[in-house]
Design a binder for these strands. Structure first.
Lengths: 216, 216
DNA sequence: CGACCAATTGAATTGATTCAAGGTCCGTGG
DNA sequence: CCACGGACCTTGAATCAATTCAATTGGTCG
């Protein structure tokens, strides 16, 4: 079993394919990689914002809570994603490891051109979040789930077998649903022959067209 | 009645109080102000993204549509707000005048430091949108409406009389509701003595604490 | 095996929507 | 000046999608 909490691991060089993130790495003092075991907090709402974070492996959820405990996950960050960028000097969201994640801390070495690199990243994130607004505000449970599966499938780039590093409650809080509804929608998809569910954390997409039809 | 469409008006200097926007203005060639009458499009999804826009007066809605016509308004922009910033070279959203708006076009004169200024703006917008995600995903109709009223009230900075430049359908599409629900929630607020409704486009907030209690 | 946590499934409930009238406001033209 | 038309808003009743509540099943670890 994984050790609890966060601890440093070997600082192997990042193999990041995204050119924008590579550009960012070139402008940062690369920190050590820390391992955060499943469920642990990387930073919390209100913590001072001092660095950026790069996901080396694993999955991170970025979330916010209402006073009475309802949670909204604003994004999942996978290997190669950068998170922790904030408008102010404290974090507005909490970042938690979903499944055991290796996180590299990036301390910006203040150069010219750094803002430009960061801007590109921020704008890209911005675009994704705007798409998520449409999903949360105007799509039903089936459409939300279809969108989520396609997002993961594209991200993982594979043959159609999608790995779910997060549990049902996380998916629910990302899509603005309950975990029971997530479960029910998956069953409906299975009954319709759109997916099969070889195990609880893997989904095999059999009919991409059906999912595409749902999202648009 | 207003002339249809967009036409130039006198290029009086902007009186913008926000320091970040002022900084941006200093790094841009200030374009002319165009007047866009109510309901007209400033730019549409897919249009090439070539400039930034500053709201001089009036209100602008930024929105996205699903294929079957459902609409999500991602933000309202009021006087002093900048919009039109995009990750790619085309607009991902549509911008429309809500009530007749004066819009100044800003062409970035490419200087050092421009990215930094823009980054600050983008991050601020980013923070607001993230808050909106929580609202759309995890709040009920009353809480959404309370949040919206407080947002407008703060923006207008006044005594508690809030002006609504947009109609019910716009509010609904911003909050992920139907216009009927917006209407009903306002009635409930009135019945509870939280607001009074002197006219259809003005809301007088009588009990800010009640609204605060709803949003958090 | 037994305990525990996650996921599934069913049944009842409910918050918001849909559908359908009315009502209000405002500008236009007789 | 008032009647008319149209756009927007309000309100009510019925419906429905998703939630809530409650078991039950499945999987994992000590």
């Amino acid at each position: 079993m994984f050790h609890q909490g966060s601890f440093p691991v070997a600082g192997t060089p990042s193999a990041v394919s995204d050119p924008q993130v590579r550009a960012l790495l070139g402008k940062c003092a690369p920190g050590a990689i820390h391992f955060h075991s499943a469920g642990t907090t990387i930073f919390a709402e209100g913590d001072p914002s001092e660095a950026l974070f790069l996901v080396e492996f694993g999955t991170v959820r970025i979330c916010r809570l209402t006073a009475d405990g309802r949670r909204q996950i604003t994004s999942f960050c996978h290997a190669g994603d950068v998170f922790g960028l904030e408008a102010g000097d404290v974090h507005a969201s909490t970042a938690e490891s979903v499944d055991g994640a290796g996180i590299r801390t990036l301390h910006p070495s203040d150069e010219a051109g750094f803002a430009r690199t960061l801007l590109a990243l921020a704008l890209r994130r911005f675009a994704r979040i705007q798409a998520h607004l449409l999903l949360l505000g105007r799509r039903n449970a089936n459409e939300k789930m279809a969108s989520f599966l396609l997002e993961l499938a594209e991200r993982q780039g594979g043959d159609g077998v999608v790995h779910l590093p997060m549990q049902r409650a996380d998916i629910a809080d990302y899509l603005g649903l309950t975990f029971e509804t997530v479960s029910r929608v998956l069953r409906v998809f299975k009954e319709r022959g759109i997916v099969s569910l070889p195990s609880v954390d893997r989904i095999m997409v059999l009919d991409f067209d059906a999912l595409d039809a749902l999202v648009d």
